[in-house]
Design a protein around this nucleic acid. Structure first.
Lengths: 340, 340
DNA sequence: ACTGGCACTCTATTAGCGGGAGTGCCAGCA
DNA sequence: TGCTGGCACTCCCGCTAATAGAGTGCCAGT
């Protein structure tokens, strides 16, 4: 048996009510609150079917119904009406973000903004190095055998690394190094640099080869291997809303997962441009986050993506609202980046 | 009536047992577990006195005793035997920290290490800008009217800011600016720089005054006003150990407090060199952290302090162990910094 | 000054008992 | 065929009462 329109309507009503009240919803309450135009008994029949199909379930016999992950999925995929942001929210974004002075500032403001608007845990990934281009490389002399390598990318990220040299180096050599490195690498996407760095070493005259090799290895590490993705997190206190009812009794596993950068990156990574992804319950493949959902979106200037951001909350969350907010914030940040 | 030795011994026993079991401790259990050499009845009398004096209390009539904040305070001040780190812990520190590549790395490793060793929430402050000295200032041309200012300090911090110029600038001018700024500021403590920056502007010839003024204001902001203290946090999941029994039922206020940088800075700031500070219960003056204690210590090369670090946990915590760990880690990080 | 004994207090646990919400099913009706 | 009202049934939740147990305070005795 397929699901006719009314059954879908019933599912939507169940999701909406449950999200709001946090309590299993019964047939009587449903017809009272929504104008379904049918009697509770009819709704009960529909519910039986929805349960059969796996979209809702009863916590125990003779309790109301609760949506399953599959139910939320269906709700998100087919029943969500796009909910435009309220003017108040638009203004909040504006007010919150205006005056950001640098990348760190932008990221921090964004993550707090997201947490505040959605009242959930927010995660923002710094613009990914691998998707950025080198704007400038700077070498600063620390001592005769130590340089500091500073890389500035077009997305505003600044990475620094210490380089230990095999032999002392003079100022002139540093000049030369700096010039050559910049000539070769400035403007290049980081993904394209390894080959160029290799060439750089080969083109170096033998007497300076040692120094260059050293620098090159640090460069590679900084540019590619390390490719360390940075993250900002905010709003963990929001996990405690709704008692400890969500997250089956303990926040522990969730908090643990939130401490693992690798996990967070997985949650908000690999996004399609211009879309907002929703991972419901164990769709995220992470045991600790069985009862959590993640709404995430890529951001970047134009239609490119340089990083991801998103929020995490209980599966029982306000999907339409959250999706709208995440999307709006992602777009805003992208535009902000485009201005630089 | 003053407290004789045995009463202090009883207090110590109560604290130790309570910390371990998380349950109010009674007179019978005390004499069983500790060789006090007296009967439960005697211990009861001592307890009555200790309660009178405010060092312990009963959750309810006819329950065992629990230490009060004052009790913990006395315990920490007079009863704590210095507990040396186990070789395993020493090795853990070594193993954890070796191979750190830059400041970010050091800070992140440190905070995770602390969280892991103490099994509590750890906080590490980045070396404070105001206590650092300028090593080098770099100006990178972004466009003809935009420079990026990069400051590198002797503690390894790298700060960057965008400078919007009032008029286009040529490469030669950038060279000149860079040279003059470095001549004036390199090697100076950040605290001493504002006057120097002022002088720098005054010494500039009129036609370049506008540009320099612009740069100077950003400099001041970066060097002093912003003086943004950065923090790293780890181990929030440890808050859930011991159920939600600590922290009177909800983690909410604690998690909220942990999100406020200002609060965290207050907790681990203003430290004396070479000491470890313990704030018990509401000694920390923060409502949300009534039932939390903070053990913190300053770190830096030698006996100087460039930043603070510490851990936060329930008032019912293992003070001797925590103090020893925090102190050891602080010293280790200080030594690490001294090497650069 | 310490000890054993004893009565007392209070909590935590368990069991028992409606009240109530919600269901599934069925027979009747459009 | 699909919807409805009625009805018996199930199970949770909250309440009360009863009990066991831990721990205390006090007192008289050594």
């Amino acid at each position: 048996m397929s699901l006719d329109d009314r059954k879908l309507e019933v599912l939507r009503a169940i999701v909406e009510d449950y999200v709001e009240t946090q309590e299993p919803v019964g047939s009587k309450a449903l017809v009272d609150r929504h104008k379904l135009g049918v009697s509770p008994a009819t709704v009960r029949n529909d519910m039986a079917v929805l349960e059969e199909e796996g979209y809702i379930r009863q916590p125990h016999t003779s309790a109301g119904r609760v949506p399953t992950d599959a139910g939320y999925r269906l709700f998100v995929d087919r029943l969500t009406k796009i909910k435009p942001l309220s003017p108040a929210e638009r203004r909040a974004i504006e007010r919150f973000m205006v005056g950001a002075v640098d990348l760190d500032d932008v990221v921090h403001r964004t993550v707090r903004l997201l947490a505040q608007l959605t009242r959930q845990v927010a995660v923002v990934q710094y613009p990914s190095l691998s998707r950025s281009a080198v704007r400038h490389l700077e070498l600063v002399t620390i001592s005769t055998t130590r340089l500091m390598l500073v890389m500035i990318t077009d997305t505003g990220r600044v990475e620094q690394r210490l380089v230990e040299l095999p032999a002392p180096i003079g100022d002139g050599d540093v000049w030369d190094l700096r010039r050559r490195v910049n000539e070769k690498l400035a403007g290049q996407r980081l993904a394209d640099t390894p080959a160029l760095v290799q060439k750089l070493v080969e083109e170096t005259d033998p007497e300076r080869r040692g120094t260059m090799t050293c620098l090159a290895s640090v460069l590679l590490e900084t540019l590619v291997e390390r490719s360390e993705e940075r993250l900002a997190l905010a709003g963990t206190a929001n996990l405690t809303r709704g008692g400890v009812l969500d997250f089956q009794g303990t926040l522990r596993p969730v908090l643990e997962a939130l401490e693992e950068e690798v996990i967070l990156l997985k949650l908000i990574g690999d996004l399609e441009p211009r879309t907002t992804r929703v991972l419901i319950g164990d769709e995220n493949q992470i045991d600790n986050l069985r009862s959590a959902s993640v709404v995430s979106s890529g951001y970047g200037p134009g239609t490119t993506i340089v990083g991801g951001l998103g929020v995490l909350g209980p599966t029982r969350m306000d999907y339409p609202g959250t999706i709208a907010t995440v999307r709006a914030v992602a777009r805003y940040v992208g535009d902000l980046l485009a201005q630089n």
